[in-house]
């Protein structure tokens, strides 16, 4: 090179975001909800979270070595997967099951499909569903803060009207005095984390708002004894909906990259969650709904290729 000058293609400057920083932001946003889980369910919850994070990171590290690929454990995405998986487990989960789930998420769902950015479903959610099917008893053993019952509010609703008097009120639901997974228990702190993610521009609101909006609409219409009498607010605050809408449906890899696609994806998640919750045998529908929509992402993106600025060119 003459004069030793460096030749590169423009642009010659980049902003200071990077994958690791985005992942760190997600972890920061999840920490308040984790703290709430530990507060309501005890220190064992902390142990579960630590185990899933550690197992995920180690699984990623070893897999990359075995696959003879560049080490990616430093991008912190494995830690995010581990943390979200842990938050989706009941506090009583046997630790060996938590470890098997973490390894399944990282090795089977993520790394065997090519690692970060390549998995077609959300690793934490796929692992959770795998665990629910494999260990249905252990995966539904709940504890309720200051209470004797051991069912989740949604479980109680499924049981029928006789259990209704045991249901926690809106305030308990919002704050987190209810049975449930470690990380989904407190809508209030989850929303604090969500505000942080939006303010830091890690996520946009298209998916969460369409998800929650369409879900609330359907549970209002079909959730009651007759049409338009459902308790939408109760449904939104129960179960994993807030956690799912803000932190799992917005997973970069498994959600559409364009605005229109995100809107369709969010509505799809909301509709499926409502249908599963109201009409199926499962009390909860968030995991299945997001997983199903994950698999539709390539299709959604293919049919929503935006027109170029000023363009009337046909789509696809």
């Amino acid at each position: 090179m003459e004069n030793g000058l460096l030749m590169t293609s423009s642009p010659h400057i980049r902003d200071n975001t990077n994958t690791r920083r985005l992942m760190a932001d997600v972890i920061i946003a999840l920490l308040p909800a984790c703290a709430a889980g530990v507060y309501f369910f005890g220190l064992r919850s902390l142990l579960v979270l630590l185990v899933t994070v550690a197992a995920s990171v180690i699984a990623e590290y070893i897999t990359r070595i075995l696959l003879k690929r560049e080490q990616t454990v430093g991008d912190m995405s494995a830690a995010v997967t581990g943390l979200i998986l842990g938050m989706n487990l009941p506090p009583t989960i046997p630790l060996w099951i938590a470890i098997v789930g973490s390894v399944f998420a990282i090795v089977i769902v993520k790394q065997l499909f090519g690692g970060i950015g390549q998995n077609f479903v959300n690793p934490a959610l796929a692992a959770r569903v795998f665990m629910v099917i494999s260990w249905p008893v252990q995966m539904t053993r709940w504890i309720i803060p200051d209470a004797v019952s051991s069912a989740t509010p949604l479980g109680l609703i499924k049981e029928g009207a006789s259990a209704a008097e045991e249901l926690p009120g809106y305030f308990e639901l919002f704050i987190g005095k209810k049975g449930g997974c470690i990380g989904e228990v407190s809508a209030a702190v989850l929303l604090i984390g969500a505000v942080y993610l939006v303010a830091r521009r890690v996520i946009t609101l298209e998916i969460p708002l369409t998800y929650i909006g369409s879900f609330a609409l359907l549970t209002w219409i079909f959730g009651g004894d007759r049409l338009f009498s459902g308790d939408a607010l109760y449904h939104v605050l129960s179960g994993g909906l807030i956690l799912g809408a803000f932190f799992m449906a917005t997973d970069y890899t498994t959600s559409p990259v364009n605005r229109k696609g995100r809107l369709i994806f969010g509505i799809g998640c909301g509709v499926l969650s409502a249908i599963i919750r109201l009409f199926s045998n499962y009390p909860e529908g968030v995991s299945f709904a997001i997983l199903i929509m994950n698999t539709l992402v390539p299709l959604i993106e293919r049919y929503t290729i935006p027109r170029s600025f000023g363009g009337g060119k046909s789509v696809a």
């Binding site: 950015g117 970069y252 890899t253």
Partner: peptide, 11 residues
């Protein structure tokens, strides 16, 4: 690094 499909380039 590998694309994480964040969609920022599209935005």
């Amino acid at each position: 690094g590998p694309c994480i499909r964040c969609g920022r380039c599209v935005d």
